[in-house]
Amino acid sequence: MERMTLEEFRATQQAPGGPDKDRRRVRGTKRTITPDGITHDSKTEAQRWEELKLLQEAGEICGLRRQVDIGLIGRDGPVMTDSGKQQRVYKADFVYVDNALGITVIEDRKGHETDVFKLKKAILAAQGVEIHITRAKG
């Protein structure tokens, strides 16, 4: 087995195409930029953003936000990162108020549910937070 120095390892982690190139990529998704210049993690997320903007313009929803951090809380308090210095978060694709129902909606656009997503979804459910999952049609 070939050994490498710490500096060589770090270089592979930071090199273009290396593991840290884009850790959020899932199953071939490609970053997409919408006409308003916002970069989204996938084409379907970008499409949903455009749909939600139209719903907001029509007055069906309000307070539309994207990439909203929601802290994860366990039985004994905040779920911390391995270092113990930061609280782990779930990053919601979209958060908005449904005007007809009068409720805040936390929405995630998914093509595939990863194990990490399933775990965070379960933690949020234990906190009483429901995630509305939308999928691309077709």
Results as ranks from 00 to 15, higher is better:
residue 23 R to W: 14
residue 56 Q to E: 15
residue 50 E to W: 14
residue 19 P to H: 04
residue 72 L to Q: 06
residue 5 T to M: 04
residue 68 V to L: 10
residue 23 R to G: 01
residue 4 M to V: 14
residue 124 L to H: 06
residue 122 A to H: 13
residue 49 W to D: 04
residue 134 T to L: 06
residue 16 P to Q: 07
residue 26 V to A: 04
residue 66 R to G: 00
residue 71 G to T: 13
residue 50 E to V: 15
residue 64 L to I: 10
residue 93 D to P: 12
residue 134 T to Y: 08
residue 79 V to Q: 07
residue 100 A to H: 12
residue 96 Y to E: 01
residue 109 R to Y: 05
residue 76 D to A: 02
residue 127 Q to M: 15
residue 84 G to E: 08
residue 108 D to T: 05
residue 51 E to V: 15
residue 51 E to H: 13
residue 112 H to L: 11
residue 69 D to P: 12
residue 135 R to G: 01
residue 138 G to V: 10
residue 137 K to F: 09
residue 6 L to P: 07
residue 85 K to G: 00
residue 76 D to P: 02
residue 123 I to C: 01
residue 106 I to G: 02
residue 67 Q to I: 00
residue 61 I to G: 02
residue 63 G to H: 12
residue 21 K to P: 07
residue 35 P to E: 05
residue 88 R to E: 13
residue 99 N to S: 08
residue 80 M to Q: 04
residue 96 Y to W: 08
residue 92 A to C: 06
residue 127 Q to F: 05
residue 43 K to Q: 11
residue 103 I to F: 05
residue 79 V to R: 08
residue 30 K to R: 15
residue 1 M to W: 08
residue 37 G to I: 10
residue 62 C to R: 15
residue 108 D to Q: 06
residue 72 L to F: 09
residue 1 M to E: 02
residue 103 I to S: 07
residue 19 P to C: 03
residue 98 D to K: 04
residue 17 G to D: 14
residue 65 R to A: 02
residue 40 H to Q: 03
residue 130 E to F: 04
residue 22 D to S: 07
residue 37 G to V: 10
residue 120 K to T: 07
residue 120 K to Y: 09
residue 68 V to P: 06
residue 89 V to S: 08
residue 110 K to F: 00
residue 76 D to R: 10
residue 73 I to T: 10
residue 35 P to F: 06
residue 127 Q to K: 10
residue 27 R to F: 12
residue 116 V to L: 15
residue 105 V to N: 10
residue 84 G to Q: 08
residue 93 D to N: 05
residue 23 R to H: 11
residue 102 G to A: 00
residue 8 E to H: 08
residue 39 T to Y: 07
residue 23 R to L: 12
residue 60 E to Q: 14
residue 41 D to P: 06
residue 116 V to N: 09
residue 80 M to F: 08
residue 109 R to I: 01
residue 6 L to R: 14
residue 38 I to D: 09
residue 30 K to N: 05
residue 135 R to T: 03
residue 33 I to Y: 01
residue 63 G to D: 15
residue 131 I to P: 03
residue 108 D to A: 01
residue 56 Q to D: 11
residue 101 L to M: 11
residue 21 K to V: 07
residue 59 G to Q: 14
residue 50 E to R: 13
residue 6 L to T: 08
residue 107 E to H: 01
residue 117 F to A: 03
residue 89 V to R: 15
residue 125 A to I: 11
residue 89 V to A: 00
residue 98 D to G: 06
residue 104 T to G: 00
residue 86 Q to C: 01
residue 41 D to H: 09
residue 26 V to E: 03
residue 110 K to E: 01
residue 112 H to S: 05
residue 59 G to C: 13
residue 94 F to H: 01
residue 103 I to G: 03
residue 4 M to P: 06
residue 115 D to K: 15
residue 29 T to Q: 14
residue 21 K to W: 13
residue 36 D to I: 07
residue 93 D to W: 04
residue 45 E to R: 10
residue 20 D to Q: 11
residue 126 A to C: 13
residue 68 V to H: 12
residue 19 P to N: 07
residue 57 E to F: 09
residue 34 T to C: 11
residue 106 I to L: 10
residue 82 D to G: 09
residue 30 K to P: 02
residue 47 Q to V: 11
residue 108 D to H: 01
residue 138 G to N: 12
residue 138 G to S: 09
residue 109 R to F: 04
residue 122 A to E: 11
residue 117 F to K: 02
residue 63 G to T: 09
residue 101 L to K: 11
residue 118 K to S: 05
residue 125 A to S: 14
residue 32 T to W: 10
residue 129 V to A: 01
residue 106 I to W: 11
residue 81 T to E: 03
residue 134 T to G: 00
residue 39 T to D: 05
